[in-house]
Amino acid sequence: MKETHHKRGIPYWDTIWMLAKTDLKMRYEGSVLGIIWVFLKPFSIFLVINYVFSTIFNQTTPNYSIKLLMGLILFSFFQDATINGMNSFVNKASILKKVYIPKWVIIISSTVHSGIAFLFNLVILFFFLTVYYGIYPHFLSILMFFYYVVLLYLVTVGISFITAPLYAKVRDLNQIWEVLLQVLFFGSPIFYPITAVPYPVRSVLYANPFTYIIEHARLALIDNSITHWDHHIIFLCVLIPCFIGSIWILKKLSRNLIEQL
């Protein structure tokens, strides 16, 4: 009998949902535009980049704008969710110190809150895709698109499982993470096509999980093609062990964590 044993027959989904809802509410509490900020933020960035590249640099890639919008929406979800996930323990310290809640519940609820904002943005994306571009994706393509979204979410959660407990101990992790996010933004084919990158560098970009997700999500939704099964298998073979590893790291780092908050 080594570990503290807690029986709790009930699932935690209500707790996760309630915390996520509260986070979303509090985020836009008192702001004039409220929930509209969820759309406004990626959109304003989209407008700037779109203007710069379509007009000034005369980007000729077909469907450039919608591809850019999609990349930006996926990236801003990733950015928002990893930051929220990293801050989750520190922000929820007052709860963690007083009540027993599994650590993963806190992390998931913080990322779900970003996920809600993401879903709002998807509605806009589909609106543009169908009404403005006249692209009606196949049912299977939409299914594949959401499969990639789930993969992206797993990457996000996996990263948060490591950064959340680490941030409680090393408080400059948020600065480091901000820089890494910048690097990732420029190192992913968000505002440029991957084909524009010369070869040795392109292989490096392919090692970035975000490249895989964004490229295939675009292929599915905009080009209506689901191919490269070898890519999917390789990606899963890397993702699954990494995710399991992150759970193990969370468990390791969480021991005696509350005392340090």
Partner: peptide, 13 residues
Amino acid sequence: AGIYTADKGGVKV
């Protein structure tokens, strides 16, 4: 309550 983990020994509830 399960908030802290004991260094040694354990609690069964």
